[in-house]
């Protein structure tokens, strides 16, 4: 018997010995919608609070017209930024450094040499201060571009902000890679206290667009 057959055979006989007499009923009595309405002013305020609590810097703007100014302010003296191939060009209109589009893909060393990355996000979760990057979305791009540069500026639209984790999971398609980001890279490995700044981007800035 090969390993696959043997492991499955063992598990099947263990099932016979250990399975409960009646099938297990999964109880889902937890909340699947959040306390605040998706896209509302309240949910944006909560997201602002939770992002800030985990050491991201947030700028609130009312409309997409204000995005270029906010992005440029965050980028400050950054000489080069990388952006995913489908990022709206207008978002970088006020930035005067070099913009490198990731198409054709930059090498890891090229990514290591850029100062910052600017992306959109697929969905954001107000309860936890999280946004999710979907590799399949053209304004978010492949995973390496938001990982190697040390500074990440993320633009989040009100329509993509939900309150709770279940609301976000429902909106996401797992067939392409996803990255859930909650604050800049951090560690709790020294005396179980959280400190920011390890291998991922050490600086995380968010432009939050909406009411």
């Amino acid at each position: 018997m090969n390993a696959r057959e043997e492991v499955l055979a063992r598990l099947r006989s263990a099932s016979v010995a250990g399975n409960p007499a009646t099938p297990v009923v999964v109880t889902r009595e937890y909340a699947t919608t959040g306390q605040l309405a998706p896209g509302s002013a309240e949910v944006l305020a909560r997201l602002d609070e939770t992002l800030t609590d985990y050491k991201a810097t947030v700028t609130r703007v009312a409309t997409t017209d204000d995005v270029p100014g906010a992005v440029a302010a965050f980028l400050g003296g950054a000489r080069t930024v990388v952006v995913p191939s489908g990022l709206p060009e207008a978002w970088l209109a006020a930035y005067d450094g070099e913009v490198r589009r990731d198409g054709p893909p930059l090498s890891v060393d090229e990514l290591d040499a850029v100062d910052a990355v600017v992306t959109g996000a697929a969905v954001a979760i107000a309860d936890t201060g999280t946004f999710v990057l979907a590799s399949a979305a053209s304004d978010q791009g492949r995973r390496a571009i938001t990982l190697v540069p040390d500074h990440h500026v993320c633009v989040i639209r009100a329509a993509d902000v939900v309150c709770s984790v279940p609301e976000a999971v429902t909106r996401l398609d797992p067939s392409a890679p996803l990255t859930f980001v909650s604050g800049p890279s951090a560690t709790s490995d020294i005396e179980l206290d959280r400190v920011e700044g390890v291998h991922g981007p050490r600086r995380l800035d968010v432009v939050l667009v909406g009411p």
Partner: peptide, 21 residues
């Protein structure tokens, strides 16, 4: 585990994605 609302990074992937990873 870490007593956080959410840990800084959670990655999900499915098999191989051309051009990513």
């Amino acid at each position: 585990s870490t007593g956080e609302r959410m840990n800084p990074y959670t990655s999900t992937w499915t098999g191989v994605t051309p051009g990513d990873g």
